[in-house]
Design a binder for these strands. Sequence first.
DNA 1: GTGTGATCATCT
DNA 2: AGATGATCACAC
Length: 223
Amino acid sequence: MIGIKRPETEYELLDRAWSIAGLTLEELALQLKRKVPENLLRNKGWVGEMLELVLGATAGSKPEPDFQHIGIELKTIPVKKNGEPKESTHVCIVPMTETQGLNWEDALVRQKLARVLWIPVEVGGDLAERRIGAPLLWSPSHEEETLLRADWEEFMELITLGDLDQITAHLGEALQIRPKAANSHALAGGIGKLGESIRTLPRGFYLRTSFTGALLARHYHCY
DNA sequence: GTGTGATCATCT
DNA sequence: AGATGATCACAC
């Protein structure tokens, strides 16, 4: 069964996600008539792309939630045997031009995180044998949103003031900014210290592992 | 280059 | 070992 048709409701999407829970990646790939790669070294996004396919996400690289018609973003999250995430979670590119007057309410990062379908996938060992976990449909709690917003506002102020050199992955409690580019020589538009246009390294917003780990634990621990 | 899907690999 | 900075593939 290949789920190519997009789910029309939240329930339909969640139902489909539950239907693949427990499958190995090999079993999922078989359903999709794909080959499991040897490893993820040159296929870092492979697991995420398989899940997009089977859940009926519109393949594409548009800067919007995967299932915009029902307001849901799909995120696969690599989890260790103890259930904790192994990696941070990329959310979206960081806007670095025309940022003045940008509100949290309108921020793409808020739109994407407003409702997320988390699909945990085992990490480590043979790629083909890793299992897909139980889906979790999540929206930030009031506390979580407050945290995210505070980080975002701090970052956007630095960007708007041209203080890009002050931004490192050490900043931010829930959200962080790290490079997001083909390589360290890539250039994107930005704002200089004098308000002028500059070229700088493209960056992305990421959720810290501590943040996603806490939200997974909060929802899965009650089983 | 931009933005999607992310994980890799090096440094501390 | 964990986190930070760097990198890989693909569509357009």
